[in-house]
Lab assay of single mutants.
Amino acid sequence: KNAAQIVDEALNQGITLFVADNRLQYETSRDNIPEELLNEWKYYRQDLIDFLQQLD
C-alpha cells in the first residue's frame, strides 16, 4: 500500500487525514475509527506525513 491509497481509503470512509505541527491528524464525523485503519496510519505515519505535506 502507499500513502495515496491510505488517504483515499480514509476519505471513502468519511475521514480526512492532514498534518498539523508535523503530526498526522484526522477529522471525521464518525463515532469511531476502525482499529485496522488506526494501525495502518501508525505503521505508515511518516509516509503519510510526507505525502500530505507535498500536497500543501
Score class of each variant (00 low, 15 high):
residue 43 Y to W: 11
residue 49 I to N: 02
residue 12 N to H: 13
residue 56 D to L: 11
residue 11 L to S: 09
residue 18 F to E: 03
residue 1 K to V: 05
residue 5 Q to G: 05
residue 9 E to F: 06
residue 12 N to F: 10
residue 9 E to D: 10
residue 37 L to Q: 04
residue 12 N to D: 12
residue 20 A to M: 12
residue 48 L to Y: 01
residue 9 E to C: 04
residue 56 D to M: 11
residue 37 L to I: 07
residue 11 L to K: 14
residue 29 S to P: 07
residue 30 R to Q: 10
residue 23 R to G: 13
residue 10 A to T: 03
residue 47 D to A: 14
residue 47 D to K: 10
residue 41 W to C: 02
residue 50 D to N: 14
residue 56 D to V: 12
residue 26 Y to A: 04
residue 44 Y to K: 04
residue 22 N to G: 15
residue 39 N to I: 12
residue 8 D to V: 13
residue 6 I to P: 00
residue 7 V to Q: 02
residue 1 K to G: 03
residue 47 D to C: 05
residue 38 L to G: 03
residue 47 D to S: 10
residue 49 I to T: 05
residue 33 I to D: 01
residue 20 A to D: 10
residue 7 V to F: 10
residue 4 A to R: 11
residue 45 R to C: 13
residue 6 I to S: 01
residue 15 I to H: 04
residue 39 N to W: 12
residue 51 F to P: 00
residue 10 A to R: 00
residue 22 N to A: 08
residue 30 R to G: 08
residue 51 F to I: 03
residue 38 L to D: 03
residue 40 E to M: 08
residue 10 A to E: 01
residue 30 R to F: 07
residue 38 L to A: 06
residue 26 Y to Q: 02
residue 26 Y to V: 06
residue 12 N to E: 15
residue 43 Y to A: 14
residue 4 A to P: 06
residue 28 T to L: 03
residue 30 R to S: 09
residue 22 N to R: 05
residue 46 Q to Y: 07
residue 17 L to S: 02
residue 8 D to L: 15
residue 26 Y to F: 09
residue 11 L to P: 01
residue 11 L to M: 11
residue 7 V to H: 04
residue 19 V to S: 04
residue 34 P to W: 02
residue 22 N to H: 08
residue 48 L to N: 00
residue 19 V to M: 06
residue 3 A to T: 05
residue 18 F to M: 07
residue 55 L to R: 14
residue 8 D to I: 15
residue 19 V to E: 04
residue 39 N to P: 03
residue 21 D to V: 04
residue 14 G to D: 04
residue 7 V to K: 03
residue 14 G to S: 04
residue 19 V to Y: 14
residue 32 N to G: 09
residue 29 S to E: 15
residue 39 N to H: 09
residue 49 I to Y: 07
residue 35 E to H: 08
residue 53 Q to D: 07
residue 9 E to Q: 06
residue 24 L to G: 01
residue 7 V to R: 05
residue 21 D to W: 05
residue 55 L to A: 12
residue 28 T to K: 03
residue 51 F to G: 00
residue 21 D to S: 06
residue 43 Y to H: 11
residue 3 A to N: 02
residue 48 L to R: 00
residue 6 I to Q: 02
residue 55 L to T: 12
residue 18 F to H: 07
residue 14 G to L: 04
residue 50 D to E: 13
residue 36 E to M: 08
residue 10 A to Y: 03
residue 34 P to C: 03
residue 8 D to T: 15
residue 18 F to K: 07
residue 45 R to L: 15
residue 35 E to P: 12
residue 12 N to T: 13
residue 1 K to M: 06
residue 29 S to C: 08
residue 35 E to M: 11
residue 53 Q to K: 12
residue 25 Q to K: 10
residue 27 E to M: 13
residue 19 V to T: 05
residue 17 L to K: 00
residue 36 E to F: 09
residue 22 N to L: 06
residue 13 Q to D: 05
residue 3 A to L: 07
residue 40 E to N: 05
residue 46 Q to H: 10
residue 51 F to L: 05
residue 52 L to S: 01
residue 38 L to P: 02
residue 6 I to W: 02
residue 45 R to F: 10
residue 6 I to V: 07
residue 53 Q to P: 04
residue 20 A to K: 15
residue 44 Y to W: 07
residue 3 A to P: 13
residue 25 Q to I: 08
residue 14 G to F: 05
residue 17 L to Q: 01
residue 10 A to P: 01
residue 40 E to G: 02
residue 41 W to G: 00
residue 28 T to M: 04
residue 34 P to R: 04
residue 39 N to G: 06
residue 27 E to A: 14
residue 29 S to I: 11
residue 11 L to V: 08
residue 18 F to C: 07
residue 54 Q to L: 11
residue 29 S to V: 10
residue 46 Q to A: 12
residue 30 R to C: 06
residue 30 R to K: 10
residue 12 N to C: 07
residue 1 K to T: 04
residue 16 T to K: 14
residue 8 D to G: 11
residue 21 D to M: 05
residue 53 Q to M: 15
residue 46 Q to D: 13
residue 14 G to A: 04
residue 43 Y to M: 14
residue 56 D to N: 13
residue 52 L to R: 00
residue 26 Y to H: 05
residue 1 K to E: 03
residue 51 F to H: 08
residue 43 Y to Q: 13
residue 41 W to K: 00
residue 41 W to E: 00
residue 56 D to Q: 13
residue 35 E to R: 08
residue 50 D to L: 12
residue 30 R to N: 12
residue 52 L to F: 08
residue 23 R to E: 15
residue 37 L to F: 07
residue 20 A to Q: 14
residue 7 V to D: 00
residue 10 A to C: 03
residue 55 L to N: 13
residue 22 N to P: 00
residue 32 N to H: 14
residue 6 I to N: 02
residue 13 Q to K: 09
residue 24 L to V: 06
residue 2 N to K: 13
residue 27 E to W: 15
residue 47 D to M: 13
residue 42 K to T: 13
residue 37 L to V: 06
residue 38 L to H: 05
residue 19 V to A: 06
residue 33 I to F: 05
residue 40 E to H: 05
residue 20 A to N: 11
residue 56 D to W: 07
residue 13 Q to M: 15
residue 30 R to D: 07
residue 48 L to K: 00
residue 1 K to H: 04
residue 25 Q to W: 14
residue 32 N to I: 12
residue 42 K to A: 15
residue 42 K to R: 13
